[in-house]
Nucleic acid binder design. Structure first.
Lengths: 252, 252
DNA sequence: CGGGTATTTGACGACTGTCAACGCCAGTGG
DNA sequence: CCACTGGCGTTGACAGTCGTCAAATACCCG
């Protein structure tokens, strides 16, 4: 559980003005408005691997755009385990929460060194009022997350271990591919089997057995923080993975 | 699976102008605006129990406010089973989907006779532009649904059968109670054990065994479409149910 | 009263978790 | 260069939760 010794609030260090356009959220807002707002409101944050961006029940002050690295969003469970909710990849929008409500419902931990742009909720709300298009876009982002969340519920409730793992791996592979980060049929892949287990509702031990079966059947090759998809049709069948759905959700 | 014989599109019959204020979504919009918009845009729909409001992959044209009855939102699974996503109760907002994207990701079926207010997506989008407060409010509704969805993921991935069922029953009881629809520690409860199984990722048979154990232990009494909570503390412990969380999400 | 729907029961087995231990590998420090 | 350390992956034995199949019973509504 949350160690009471360490500060619950991570210590991201805001740096110079964020150099990148916060693609995920602000792409629909006029450039002028962004420039105006970001000039004094946006900070840049760096996290080391395993560092938390925020934790459940913290008063959340910022929303973020992930620029570099992978971040795990998860819900801590009562017994000390955790349920992975989503893996945020570069370009993703993180940490929006109900306006006027104090606390975040989940935790966010960097899986790799990560670079993020932060934006205060307070200002975000103001921008929503000034820029209706932004609000519509935000609603769409949320709706996309929602569809992904429902897909996960289907997996957790109705698929067996192999199906859940196969789906997760293919989803991550294609999300990376869609942002041009694949090398052929391989991607950089920083997830440990423990994290895969967290995301699929499995134990490490069982995750390991599934991965080994996949490897033995020549479906994939996963080692040294790289994942190579060797037999996508087979994996897609096992995981009931539909590329068109993922492209519609995460493609653009 | 979906019987190819019956029309995939249900046949809701729009009636006279919706007499109720669409509380869930439009409560923040000026009364004048609502009157203006609803005068010619909103229709009323009636469903019988088991009738579908819409089905997955249908081109969705409407969003709805549920006025009377219970509606099950679910994702059909490949093997003909289904994963329940959420139970919509009177007052809930249903069916918003990504603007500009054609198809709904899930299905919605009435569990009881139901009465709904429909609102075309096209007009909703226009209203979002005109009424920024509405957009913020919509984002909040979505965020609330998102938190509920994450809670479900935690349950499906990390709790065992008894915990999932206990949580579901308490959640539904308190959601009904919060809208004044409880009689003491009992509510009208139209869910069959099959639907409970759909929502908790269990089979009917196992759901039945869990329910019987609860009954044998004197934790609840469930029969004749009524649910009575006899030992809430025990159920809350089993389901890791936190009333404050649910009140924060569904209260108001 | 009859037919369909919902609940219940039993036997059986598979999937997955638990516990405990071992091995591999990279980074670190001597 | 080597020993040490911690993280991660791997293995085996075993238990139990939960699914499957099949059938009987209870309930509801026309």
């Amino acid at each position: 559980m949350n160690p009471s010794t360490s500060s619950p609030i991570p210590d991201p260090t805001p740096c110079e003005r964020c150099p990148i356009r916060a693609r995920a959220l602000f792409q629909v807002v006029s450039e002028d408005y962004i420039r105006e707002a970001q000039k004094y409101r946006t900070g840049q944050y760096r996290l080391r691997a395993r560092e938390h961006l925020y934790r459940q029940n913290e008063p959340a002050a910022f929303a973020y755009t992930l620029y570099e690295g992978w971040v795990l969003l998860y819900r801590p469970a009562g017994d000390g385990s955790r349920q992975g909710l989503r893996v945020a990849l570069p370009g993703d929008f993180i940490g929006y929460r109900q306006l006027h409500i104090e606390r975040v419902s989940h935790s966010a931990m960097a899986l790799t060194p990560a670079l993020l742009c932060g934006f205060p909720h307070r200002d975000l709300e103001a921008m929503l009022h000034d820029q209706p298009r932004l609000a519509v876009h935000l609603a769409n982002i949320q709706q996309r997350d929602m569809a992904s969340c429902q897909e996960s519920m289907l997996g957790l409730g109705r698929k067996r271990a192999e199906g859940r793992v196969a789906y997760l791996l293919l989803e991550l592979f294609h999300r990376m591919r869609l942002r041009g980060a694949a090398e052929g049929n391989a991607i950089a892949f920083p997830l440990t089997q423990e994290v895969i287990g967290d995301l699929t509702g499995l134990t490490v031990v069982h995750t390991n057995r599934v991965m080994q079966r996949f490897r033995a059947q020549g479906l994939l090759h996963c080692a040294r923080r790289r994942l190579e998809i060797l037999d996508e049709p087979a994996l897609a069948a096992i995981g009931e993975f539909d590329l068109r759905v993922v492209e519609a959700q995460f493609g653009r």
